[in-house]
């Protein structure tokens, strides 16, 4: 399964890139699986927000082929 991972703000600094393409072998994949592979096993920081295809979700959500999964800190606009 091929997916795109995106990072913003402090998460981009932490991961050292803004985007990565991942291939996961498992048939059933969650956001937590994506993070585990992308971060090489680092714990997900508590306050991290997650979006799949630009909709907010959580670490238990299922990920599908071609999805864009984003990880970022709490938002501070306005």
């Amino acid at each position: 399964m091929n997916i795109t991972v995106r990072y913003f703000a402090g998460m981009r600094d932490r991961m050292g890139c803004s985007e990565a393409n991942l291939t996961l072998d498992k048939g059933s994949v969650t956001v937590a699986d994506v993070w585990a592979q992308a971060s090489e096993g680092q714990p997900l920081p508590d306050s991290t927000l997650i979006a799949i295809n630009m909709e907010y979700t959580d670490a238990d959500a299922s990920v599908c082929e071609g999805d864009e999964v984003a990880f970022f800190p709490p938002v501070t606009g306005g």
Binding site: F8, A9, G10, D13, L49, A51, Y56, F72, P73, P74, V75, T76, G77, G78
Partner: peptide
Amino acid sequence: INYLKKKAPFWKRETTPEGEQRWVEHN
């Protein structure tokens, strides 16, 4: 404006006069 601040994905990074940069962690 309240919901925009809560939902819209923007992030502020401030630079001080000394050139130090920091991400704003919360509004």
